[in-house]
């Protein structure tokens, strides 16, 4: 049985259609990555899955008693709240000292045990968040750009930990990531979201596309081939920072950000369908 299944979920936030008939299932033990431009509804989708937001239409089924480990995109801790790293790990359920120390050591944050949460740097904070999420031995781990702010070794360590968790405990992982080279290596499935599910499939499938091959030589930029799908229902207010960043040789088209640009108007250019 699937851990979570979403059937045609739609949600508007502040008058904007953030999720548009999104369907998705998560099976035990699989690693699924969601990619998509800024504002494409990635974090919103994760919040629907944990139950923090309720869809306006569509159905969501979670396995009964599903244990979810969640690492939010950012976590603000009010400076009036004194909280040591050790105490944080025991929220909401108390964990033993051995388990806490082991989790921190695994996350490369063993020396931070008695620090105040508010004193940590961005990367240290993220490591502690990960340690806490892994401590609960979740059946589904949900990571919202979890490695944001981690240095390269930290990020590599983290994905190794996720991989080990999946191997040893059969934990499923759903993540949003901008590190597309990691996405390609570690995921079983990739879902490209842009309000709706644009395309999804195995990363190998994506990687075998000629456009992807052609770009893969340029290192991480190659993974941007994932974005080379049909944009003819483009949402005008999206922030196409990836395109902007990597220039026109990656995307051989000119994105108009004109607000009058309606959904019905097709872009007059061709995109490689990759998945």
């Amino acid at each position: 049985m699937s851990l979570v299944s979403l059937d045609s979920i739609s949600l508007r936030l502040g008058g904007r259609q953030v999720l548009d008939h999104v369907s998705l299932t998560l099976e035990p033990g699989e690693i699924v990555t969601i990619v998509g431009p800024n504002g494409s509804g990635k974090s919103t989708l994760l919040k629907v899955i944990i139950g923090a937001l309720h869809p306006e239409s569509g159905r969501i089924n979670r396995q009964k008693g599903l244990k979810i480990g969640y690492v939010p995109q950012k976590l603000h801790i009010d400076p009036t709240l004194p909280l040591t790293v050790r105490r944080f790990l025991s929220l909401p359920n108390r964990v033993s000292d051995e388990a806490a120390h082991a989790a921190l050591d695994d996350a490369g944050a063993g020396h931070l045990c008695n620090h105040q949460m508010t004193d940590l740097s961005g990367g240290q904070f993220q490591r502690v968040l990960l340690a806490r999420a892994l401590l609960t031995e979740p059946e589904l781990l949900i990571l919202d750009e979890a490695t944001q702010g981690l240095d390269q070794p930290g990020s590599a360590d983290f994905y190794a930990q996720v991989e080990a968790l999946r191997r040893d405990k059969g934990c499923a992982v759903l993540m949003v990531s901008h590190e597309l080279h990691v996405v390609m290596a570690a995921s079983d499935r990739v879902v490209c979201l842009n309000g709706h599910v644009c395309c999804h499939g195995a990363p190998e499938h994506v990687a075998s596309a000629p456009e992807y091959r052609a770009l893969f030589g340029t290192g991480t930029h190659g993974a941007l081939a994932l974005y080379r799908h049909d944009h003819n229902h483009d949402h005008c207010d999206l922030d196409h920072d990836h395109e902007a960043h990597h220039g026109q040789q990656v995307h051989m088209h000119d994105h108009s950000h004109d607000r009058t640009h309606g959904d019905s108007q097709d872009h007059p250019h061709d995109h490689g369908e990759t998945a």
Partner: peptide, 12 residues
């Protein structure tokens, strides 16, 4: 936990 972050609480 709720005081810290509502989403974290919901996930738990």
């Amino acid at each position: 936990t709720t005081t810290l972050n509502p989403d974290l609480a919901i996930a738990s």
